[in-house]
Design a protein around this nucleic acid. Structure first.
Lengths: 271, 271
DNA sequence: CGCCTACTTGAATTCATTCAAACGCCGTGG
DNA sequence: CCACGGCGTTTGAATGAATTCAAGTAGGCG
């Protein structure tokens, strides 16, 4: 029953569709006016490309602008003195590369591409302008960064308390929901262009062990993989294996109270 | 040479002293006017107490206000279905309990006390007011939350890529610097009221293994412990063991560019 | 004094790593 | 067309770091 739906599906919560993945994601937080959506589209219009396996920004550098990832996959990672590497998070379409820009002197980690990517550079000025003039978008971006923080905490839980199977299962579930939130799933299928080495570097495991876990999952018909497309054949059991609960992604939006507050700000500006 | 300096020492960077630990911390980011400092002192004035080992907020709850921790130690943690527990971060004086309040519907983790604590509750309103009227403080708080995020990423690196010794050493170094930043160290000595079980729940290790690592550190004269006071006798070697580099704490403040920007906002408001 | 919690230590076990080798796929170039 | 590498994956066997189980010690407190 899970194999392949024919159409892209909407995130299960409530959110309308949107061509812009960032818009799709932010709609999980709160509704946005047409004007807000247009603003986001303008923001996403500029385009720059990077090939696979290059750094967009490296540790120690001072980033000059934020990047909105429009297509492809990237990662935040850090190289270890002993030659190892730890991948902290994956960036998928709709994710912003670095809000840190504004406040921190230099990057404490690197951002590198996994596949070729298309990004929209966003200057400091236009972001500041956005903060000043679009309270609802600003709030949604803030929410989005809270969500990212929550994902970091969950990763800590994974690495600290789950065994290899649980870690892999958890990551797969998280990526499924994240892709759903930006409209990039097809049933339980999504693009996963990661090597087993990269999975290992993410989950604190060796590539060979990742291999064994994936093999087991395939044999138990929990997943199937074909030319970088990952299908979760039994999400129920994967979630159970991982102790996964999607609440931490906060896809349900915010409270009416908060919405009202930002509507108030919005109204204020109009005058 | 490391055992016990006679006075509280200042964080090595540049920051002036301050009775208020939050102020001390924020001064690492940028200078604050007397008026700003007074504002922070007013915020920190209200007082509420919690005993040790209770939840200030539990997973699933909707927090009603932010808490500024003034004294004692607390933790963000999450209980696992199998009875286990993962501690995500420790909260020390100067830390704010939950900025998430405003945007997320409910807590995805709990905050519990470790020791008895004194906190200053801060209402949503006074925080919103602060954001509107105190750009420099707001920026500093934002910086502080970037710092927290960086610490989460570092924890991921620890759990993913460091062995037990490295993890313990890393945590000790981090806590030393964090305590320094709020003026709560005495040379290389600081209060560490954690049980070995709590350390284990933080670092993804069993208490017995924590015990063995600490024993080794004591035997190698890297640390000494006495009635909950932790002395790092050989910070150099601990940092080497952990591959520790304090840059991720961003204690060096921000760029002049950013400072100028917020000074501009400040000036704007004055009119 | 007795109890509870935290700490300590030893021995057996296990999950994941390390080392090693082979396989398949794919693009390049002879 | 096939040979050649390179990279990612797959599999086996030996090793090892940390866990589990178990039992004993030490310290704080009613």
């Amino acid at each position: 029953m899970a194999c392949a739906a024919e159409h892209r599906d909407q995130p299960s919560a409530t959110p309308p569709p949107a061509g812009n993945p960032l818009t799709s994601k932010l709609l999980h937080f709160a509704p946005l006016s047409n004007s807000d959506r247009q603003h986001l589209d303008r923001l996403a219009a500029p385009e720059e490309r990077f090939p696979a396996s290059v750094d967009i920004i490296a540790e120690g550098m001072v980033p000059r602008s934020v990047f909105l990832l429009k297509e492809g996959m990237a990662m935040r990672y850090r190289n270890m003195p002993d030659g190892g590497r730890q991948i902290m998070t994956f960036l998928i379409p709709g994710d912003l590369c670095d809000m840190h820009v504004f406040l921190l002197k230099e990057m404490d980690h690197s951002i590198g591409t996994i596949t070729p990517v298309r990004v929209a550079p966003i200057s400091r000025e236009s972001l500041m302008d956005l903060f000043a003039s679009r309270p609802r978008i600003s709030a949604a971006l803030w929410w989005s960064s809270m969500q990212e923080e929550a994902m970091l905490r969950e990763r800590i839980v994974s690495l600290g308390r789950r065994d290899a199977r649980g870690r892999v299962a958890y990551l797969l579930c998280e990526l499924l929901w994240r892709h759903r939130a930006v409209g990039l799933t097809n049933g339980e299928v999504f693009r996963l262009p990661l090597t087993q080495t990269e999975l290992g570097d993410t989950l604190g495991l060796t590539p060979v062990h990742i291999n064994r876990v994936l093999k087991e999952f395939r044999q138990r018909s929990l997943i199937s993989m074909d030319r970088r497309m990952m299908s979760l054949l039994n999400v129920e059991e994967l979630q159970a294996l991982a102790g996964f609960n999607k609440d931490y992604l906060h896809l349900g939006g915010t409270s009416p109270e908060v919405t009202r507050y930002f509507d108030g700000l919005e109204a204020n500006l109009k005058r």
